[in-house]
Design a protein around this nucleic acid. Structure first.
Length: 888
DNA sequence: AATCCGACAAAGG
DNA sequence: CCTTTGTCGGATT
């Protein structure tokens, strides 16, 4: 059962009348206990409770009924119970039918809520189902504020100096921002003496910033020179620190500051940069720069919560468990430290280094905790150790030179901050300036560089963890050099895959597959047509999925977020003992994670050119590629007919997603070849056909080929017969796929699929929950919505062999749904299938339809989606096997 | 020959 | 502004 199913089951308990004896068993069932386990529990043989009326389910929950108003006292009894200590239930729970009191014995966390709100508290109750909650780190509001201030400064500078927005100045502009940020940060954290930089700037730049440009240039040049070599510079620069480290090397220039820009500079200086999160330090610079650049070169920075979602399950969680186990044993703690000193983190698409910075910070924080504990165990003063985690253990590749430089700087600042908190705890730290060791950041194209040369393979006792958020480009979006990257990495036959997939393959090949890796990626590598080609090839290596996230929408604190749904996948070259499948706030411990991001054995569903279960042929609707010239709105149609009644013959109803789902009306120009002369004699028709021809001449390859037959759709599947139409892309919020029956004259557009002359029972099958589940699992998506398809979804959909009687029953059921819909005329599909407002009778006929069809699969309706999917995959696999044996 | 996709894109609230 | 939800053209198979 997935968390949603558990939620539903719990909500059902809350809605039913309370029965103190039955409640624990209903709760067990709702939290995914096996039928057999429940009946044993009911029989008493496995019930270990030592409380009156209590039920203790080993490792899951301990329940006792409470007298009215006494839930608190009963919960205390549950906690005090000896059996609670031995059976280690994940949840203590009691209720009097009005209030529920529950506790996690492991953490002592308690919660009280009304009985009717059990469903809403499912997150708290999930441990009873063997699932933990997983809390992501919150975003830091100071970072967001700082980004805004920098963006305003940046915009003001560009406004005052339009030429600085040009390509040749952009690098200098960004460099200026980076140097300014470093100075603002340094003077706030004590790398520079207190407020030194801003004091000098605002003393010497004039009241309105007239001299700001010259002053900033002088200051930056000074920081690149040892103090005794600043003879050519103004005397006031003498007191500035020598920073070096490459940060102030090279050309130094600055744009002119006008009053507004100067005020924003002051504004930015006033911010307390001490609280800045160095994790996103570099990304801030990128997010204030030209928004157009953001979509290029993978410049979408990953937020800290999302980075934690990657590196937590990749190696931090495991490390934490080890620390926890070693907590009372100095020797064991020392071993953990040794291990940590040999952990290297490698991000082959590092951008401004966020993953490396966060990894570094997290490791240093754990190290400090261990050192503190060692001092506690061995006595004060027993510790003379310095950090064993060198910044040189962090490796990155980045294609943009500027981002690579930023990554080094961000890591330096992270190191400084880690040292500062070390000093706070232990009272000592090394000097901060000039900058010394740097992380191993390489500038270049990660897909053309040998990774082992950048980050040497781990020797015995060493570990390399590869993590990152590489760029995504779909097959039709990427540049030819990116496609060439794929070819160079042996993916020449897999060009339909997203660009991001190459990082998975390259990581699996790195160091003979000896290291674990985890990447954020577009969710489309786990959906639709990409799944089988990508994962069949990747699973030829020994790598298995150890953890994964169900798709979630991309978000960071940048102003403009990318519109993409992503997943995170972590892999290792051994089978996992427990795989972790994350879904929102919950994590399920499962045996295996399929690339479809469901807890099943992987069964690749391969696109098929015809239904492998012998369903009738389905085609995609007709695709005009017409520059919209052959498409006609209702009003345009009326106008055209009014101008010339002969036009009516050449305008047919046109059905796409909007028309099917939302009841909109639309028409299209449809001219049979033999009617061409007649049609072209109608002026308003000829105008549109000519415009279509003009459009096609400038369009893509296939459209150009069709430029001399502009009266016809570029691709046509119209058959002038009755059809069953299914929308192409649609919301995933509806409970059923809204297929409709269309009459002969209706042209199905490519935004819908059609079965022409459909057998009536097909409507019943397409409308079923089983079919929707198949679509949701193996189909492609657009955003979070469904995307129907012929080859991946329909042609692979498993059905049993129906008898004539069964087909007749399905036909009757199909008619009942259609009749019910008709009784609500003129409601549109959107209204009829509104998730919150679906008419009860319509839901009821759909449920009957589901029960009828499902009984034909297994002799009874399925219990839940888990059971449904199991059966569908089983049928699919068996069919594929049978077809293979048949020699095809 | 025709698909299934989009670090989406436009409409709706 | 943020949320919701399915267009449209076309490089790839």
């Amino acid at each position: 059962m997935n968390p949603t199913e558990i939620y539903d089951a719990l909500a059902e308990i809350a809605a039913a009348p309370f029965d103190p004896d039955e409640f624990p068993f209903a709760f067990a069932e709702a939290t995914d206990a096996a039928k057999a386990a429940i009946s044993k529990l009911r029989g008493g043989s496995t019930n270990k409770s030592d409380l009156p009326g209590g039920v203790l389910f080993n490792r899951k929950f301990h329940y006792a009924p409470a007298m009215t108003g006494l839930v608190e006292a009963t919960l205390d009894q549950l906690r005090a119970s000896k059996k609670t200590r031995t059976a280690k239930p994940a949840i203590l729970i009691t209720t009097d039918g009005e209030t529920v009191a529950a506790e996690h014995p492991a953490s002592g966390e308690r919660r009280h809520f009304r009985f009717t709100e059990i469903g809403d508290n499912f997150g708290f109750l999930l441990p009873a189902a063997g699932k933990e909650r997983y809390r992501a780190v919150e975003e830091n509001p100071v970072d967001v504020k700082a980004t805004g201030k920098l963006a305003r400064l940046y915009d003001a500078l560009i406004k005052a100096n339009p030429d600085w927005a040009s390509d040749e100045h952009r690098h200098e502009m960004n460099q200026l921002m980076m140097r300014l940020i470093f100075c603002m940060f340094a003077e706030d954290v004590g790398i520079f003496p207190d407020e030194q930089f801003s004091r000098l700037i605002f003393t010497h730049a004039g009241n309105r910033g007239e001299e700001a440009r010259e002053v900033i240039i002088a200051a930056f040049r000074a920081m690149n020179l040892p103090k005794d070599r600043r003879g050519d510079l103004p005397a006031w620069t003498r007191e500035l620190e020598y920073v070096n480290g490459g940060l102030f090397a090279g050309a130094i220039d600055a744009p002119r500051f006008d009053t507004i820009a100067f005020r924003y500079l002051r504004d930015a200086c006033d911010l307390n940069w001490r609280q800045i999160n160095p994790d996103i330090f570099g990304s801030m610079i990128q997010s204030v720069a030209d928004p157009k650049q953001r979509s290029e070169l993978g410049m979408h920075y990953t937020s800290v919560p999302n980075i934690m979602k990657v590196i937590g399950p990749l190696f931090l969680d495991d490390l934490d468990a080890e620390i926890h186990k070693a907590w009372d044993r100095p020797r064991a703690l020392q071993q953990v430290l040794d291990r940590m000193s040999r952990i290297r983190v490698f991000d082959p698409a590092c951008g401004s280094g966020n993953f490396l910075v966060v990894s570094y910070r997290e490791l240093r924080a754990r190290e400090t905790r261990i050192l503190q504990r060692l001092e506690e165990l061995n006595g004060p003063g027993s510790l003379h150790m310095w950090s064993v985690i060198p910044i040189t253990n962090f490796y990155g590749i980045e294609i943009a030179d500027f981002a690579a430089e930023t990554a080094k700087l961000a890591l330096f600042i992270a190191e400084y901050q880690a040292n500062a908190s070390f000093a706070e705890v232990f009272g000592r730290s090394p000097a901060a300036l000039p900058l010394k060791d740097a992380a191993n950041i390489r500038t270049g194209n990660a897909l053309r560089i040998d990774w082992e040369e950048v980050c040497p393979p781990p020797a015995d006792g060493e570990e390399v963890f590869i993590a990152g958020n590489p760029p995504y480009y779909g097959a039709k979006k990427r540049e030819s050099w990116q496609t060439e990257d794929m070819v160079q990495n042996g993916l020449g036959d897999l060009q339909l895959l997203d660009y991001v997939s190459v990082w998975f393959f390259k990581a699996a090949r790195y160091a003979a597959g000896s290291s674990a890796f985890a990447f954020v990626a577009t969710s489309s590598i786990c959906q639709g047509e990409q799944v089988a080609p990508m994962w069949n090839a990747l699973f030829e290596t020994a790598f298995k999925i150890h953890f994964a996230y169900r798709p979630f929408i991309w978000k960071n604190s940048a102003a403009d977020n990318a519109g993409v749904w992503v997943t995170i996948i972590g892999m290792k070259n051994v089978a996992p003992t427990v795989a972790k499948l994350f879904d929102d706030a919950a994590v399920s411990n499962v045996k295996e994670i399929s690339p479809y991001l469901v807890p099943f054995k992987y069964i690749p569903v391969t696109a098929a050119t015809k239904s492998i279960f012998s369903l009738p042929v389905m085609v995609m609707g007709s695709n005009p590629v017409d520059g919209k010239w052959l498409s006609v709105s209702s009003r345009e149609r009326e106008e055209m007919i009014e101008t010339d009644p002969r036009a009516e013959k050449f305008i047919l109803p046109y059905l796409g997603g909007d028309e099917l789902i939302d009841g909109k009306e639309r028409h299209c120009i449809w001219i049979d070849d033999e009617d061409l002369q007649d049609a072209l004699s109608v002026r308003c028709i000829k105008e549109r056909v000519d415009s279509c021809a003009a459009y096609r001449k400038t369009a893509g390859r296939d459209a150009r080929k069709a430029a001399d037959i502009p009266h016809r759709f570029c691709y046509s599947t119209y058959r002038n017969g009755p059809s069953l139409a299914i929308p192409n892309s649609q919301s995933s919020d509806r409970e059923f796929i809204p297929a409709v029956m269309a009459s002969s004259e209706v042209v199905i557009s490519k935004e819908a699929f059609a079965i022409y002359y459909p057998p009536n029972h097909m409507f019943s099958i397409i409308s079923s929950s089983l079919h929707r589940l198949w679509l949701a699992t193996v189909g492609g998506r657009i955003g979070n919505g469904f995307r129907y398809s012929v080859r991946v979804v329909y042609n692979t959909f498993p059905v049993p062999k129906f008898t004539e009687e069964e087909l007749a029953a399905l036909t009757t059921s199909a008619r009942a749904i259609l009749k019910c819909r008709y009784s609500h005329y003129p409601k549109t599909i959107t209204e009829l299938y509104d998730p919150d407002g679906m008419p009860d009778d319509l839901r009821a006929v759909h449920r009957q339809n589901d029960d009828l069809l499902e009984t034909m699969y297994i002799g009874r309706p399925f219990r839940n989606d888990t059971e449904r999917l199991e059966k569908l995959f089983k049928l699919y696999a068996a069919r594929v096997k049978a077809l293979d044996k048949g020699g095809k």
